[in-house]
Every structure is written in C-alpha cells, then in structure tokens.
C-alpha cells in the first residue's frame, strides 16, 4: 500500500495513473449526472410548497457541496505541500482552485435564480450567502496569487498558506444556517436519522451529487496532469511523451 502510494507521488507515474483513471471517472460522472438530472428534472414529483422551483437542488446542492469540499481539499493539499513538500500536493492546490471557484459561482448563480421566485429577491445579505460569496473571493485570491508568481514552487507555497488561512471560512459557510437566523433553509438530506425528503426526490439528488464529485475529480486529475507537464517540461519522460 505504502510503496504504491510513494510510487504514485512521483510525477511520471501519477501522470500515467491519471491517464488511466480520468476517462472512467468521466464516463461514470456522465452517467450519474445524466440520470440524476433527468430523474430530478422530469420524473421526481413536484414539491408541495415550492412546486417545480425546488428542482434547482439537483444543480445547486452538488455545486454548493463541492464548493466546500474542494476548498477543504485544497487546504489539506496545502498542509501536505508545506509539511512534506510533495510536488503533487502543490499541483493539487493550483489545480483545485479554478474548479472550486467554478462550482462556487454555479452555487451562487443557481441560488439567486431560485431566490427570485421563492424569496422575492435575487440577493439578500444573509450569513450563508455572504460567506459563500467570501468563499468565491478566497478562491479567486488563490488563483490571482498563483498567477502572480513566475516560480511555480513559490506560487504553490504562497497559495498553500493562503488556502490554509482561508479555511476558517469553511465551517462558517457550513454552519451559518444554524449559528445565525438565516433565510437559507437548513439541509434536508445530510442529517442524522430520517431524512426529511422523499426517496423519489432524494435518489436522483444522491446520483447527481456523486456524479458532480466524480466530475470534479476528473477535472482535478486533468488539471494536475497539465500542471505536472508544465513543471516537468524539461524532464526526459515529458520529452518522450511529447515526441510521439
């Protein structure tokens, strides 16, 4: 197990591993997202209160969950990069930031589209919305900082520190609906005991949630491959790869 792990941490074997795994992730993500979105948008029953508008959750919830998970992943990669100086963890930080920023923007936009008919306003200055917006700014800050450095390793170290410090915001986003009186509703699926959502609505949601995670995983692997190629462009194995 450990030797496999160590081998994976070397850029060329990671590159080959990602090449093998990413297509499978893409196919699985496509199937799950296809089923989840189709079943969610056409088959699942209407909500008794929100009507068809509730169907936004099949996009909004996966996007919001990923916005937090990817930031957490980025901060963990930051810790690993700073402590063990593993190059792949450095690549992971800069690879995850744009993906996380996209999902955060998607969560904000879908939330706004749902907020207009439900709350009567696209935007309210409320704890959940504000902290999610701050999360987007943190992602953009990491991307901006990464672009500002010429040296890739210095960029990754600075981004790692910023990602770790910004991670304070993650629990604030997650628990904002419980700590403050928020207009945003509390979670219906991720809680202990019986979920307060019917299975016909929940199963497509789980499918699209899993599909979105696999999609993000695939995107992360591909971005990391690009970053590895960029960093190792003078190494022998990259020259062999590109010579073909």
């Amino acid at each position: 197990m450990w030797t496999w792990f160590h081998r994976l941490a070397s850029p060329p074997s990671f590159y080959r591993f990602a090449d093998r795994v990413a297509p499978w992730l893409a196919v699985a993500a496509l199937l799950l997202l296809g089923y989840g979105l189709f079943a969610g948008l056409w088959i699942a029953p209407k909500d008794y209160q929100q009507g068809d508008a509730f169907r936004i959750i099949y996009v909004h919830v996966p996007a919001a969950a990923l916005s937090l998970s990817l930031y957490t992943g980025m901060a963990i990669a930051g810790v690993v990069a700073l402590i063990w100086r593993i190059k792949l963890a450095e690549c992971a930080i800069v690879a995850l930031a744009p993906i996380g920023a996209s999902f955060t923007a998607l969560a904000l936009v879908t939330g706004m589209l749902w907020g207009k008919p439900m709350w009567g306003a696209y935007w309210v200055w409320d704890a959940r919305l504000t902290s999610e917006l701050v999360l987007l700014f943190l992602y953009l800050g990491v991307i901006g900082l990464d672009q500002a450095f010429l040296d890739r390793r210095a960029a990754a170290r600075a981004c790692a520190l910023l990602a770790i410090v910004g991670a304070v915001n993650v629990p604030i986003v997650k628990y904002s609906v419980e700590w403050w009186n928020s207009l945003h509703q509390a979670s219906t699926i991720l809680k202990f005991g019986k979920p307060t959502i019917t299975a016909e609505m929940a199963i497509p949601l789980y499918a699209s949630l899993l599909g979105a995670y696999l999609l993000a995983g695939m995107a992360a692997l591909r971005r990391m491959q690009n970053e590895v190629l960029l960093r190792e462009r003078r190494a022998g194995w990259v020259r062999e790869l590109t010579a073909v």
Partner: peptide, 11 residues
Amino acid sequence: LLPVLVLPLLA
C-alpha cells in the same frame, strides 16, 4: 493583488 487577498479575509 494585496487588497484582493486581504479584503475577503477581513470581511
């Protein structure tokens, strides 16, 4: 870049 990094952290 500096204000862009600082302002969200200070929100």
